[in-house]
Write a protein that binds this DNA or RNA. Structure first.
Lengths: 203, 203
DNA sequence: CTCCTGTCGTAACAGACGTTACGGTAACAT
DNA sequence: ATGTTACCGTAACGTCTGTTACGACAGGAG
């Protein structure tokens, strides 16, 4: 009939191009032409795969969410203990290397873009609430005897800290090197009584 | 000689217009025309006061930084104790009402814009480092017997938590109501042993 | 009053933008 | 081999962008 093209792979490649432009040139220069150039094609292909720029951005946002979720699930599955799982899952959200630093910049870019796009902000909220629920579950597993309210407060403190640290480190890698972020996370987990080293008796 | 116009006031009004557009329409719609419309003037005045769009954005960024610094200094000056100062200063960084929520959106917008503007990112870094140094000083005053490294780790955990919470709450006010943010902050300060309620003996 | 200097609205410019239309091309079915 | 259908590069469209140029206007100085 017609020749076969891997549409999903093309869409993923274009989404990666969106991440590249967003991370290296910023939201203001995130044009269809720039994405096409980063993907090594022309605007013809981009507009053939997506009805418009909005749909392209939304697909790229969705794919980023799925990517991080897969990474988190793998970390959680492979963790030797609930507290290790909590620590590893939070750790992956930091900006510790070039890739995660890039991801954090892209995350901020999408958040800024969501101001002008109702569906983007809705996607952010859905993903963020799932993320929060996950960390609450991990905190609950790491501290089974805690009251629900304490689990909620601590989980919130942890996810906001991780996200804020990633944003700070992405914007100023020199001032926030990986070691500083890791020590910050360790200090927080220890303070909350969620460190793996020695179990705290209670809060 | 010539008629007198309050240039500083005009620049401030235009900067407020930048904040308005950035917070309500987002970075992508932050055009010179939109700023002029929000300020109730035309592009003629905008381009008469600023050499170009970049300078307008940078001035607005600078003014936002000075605004929050003034607020923080007042809070710090009026605080009854070092621990109250720390708590109040961190609290003002949260997104607890419409104004601070708006400020947080604007902050994210400027951070996203800084990807494409070397001077904006440099301004962010300078302001952020000053902010970090301030909180480190406040933590040191609130816990005089701590080691320098501990002060640094805890201060970093606190500022990243506050910034992350503001961003989350601005993007999803329903899921992150003021009470949740305040409880999160209280829980963190208590966990770190920086609560005002009862002095912790040591970390 | 008459300059005259700074103010700022109006209008236009070139370029970049998202989007549409079209056509050459390549691969599959027959 | 030939027809057919989807693919996608090319080019154009109208719109919107930052920026420039110009001129009308206002108010202190002489």
């Amino acid at each position: 009939m017609t020749r076969i093209v891997d549409k999903k792979a093309q869409e993923a490649a274009l989404s990666r191009a969106v991440w590249d432009v967003l991370g290296q040139q910023g939201l203001e220069r995130l044009t269809v032409r720039a994405v096409a150039a980063a993907a090594g094609c022309t605007t013809g292909l981009v507009m053939h795969r997506f009805p418009n720029r909005q749909a392209l951005l939304r697909h790229a946002r969705q794919l980023l969410h799925e990517k991080t979720r897969a990474r988190v699930e793998a970390l959680e599955r492979d963790a030797p203990s609930p507290r290790a799982a909590l620590r590893d899952v939070l750790r992956q959200g930091l900006a510790l290397d070039a890739e995660t630093r890039h991801e954090s910049i892209v995350w901020v870019g999408f958040l800024a873009a969501a101001v002008a796009d109702d569906e983007l902000i809705e996607m952010h909220r859905a993903g963020n609430r799932a993320w929060r629920a996950r960390v609450e579950r991990l905190v609950g597993a790491a501290a089974p005897d805690w009251a629900e309210a304490d689990v909620s407060d601590v989980a919130l403190g942890l996810i906001t800290m991780a996200e804020g640290a990633a944003a700070f480190a992405a914007a100023d890698p020199v001032a926030y090197p990986p070691a500083a972020q890791e020590q910050m996370l360790t200090a927080a987990l220890t303070a909350y009584g969620l460190s793996e080293e020695r179990r705290s008796l209670s809060r």
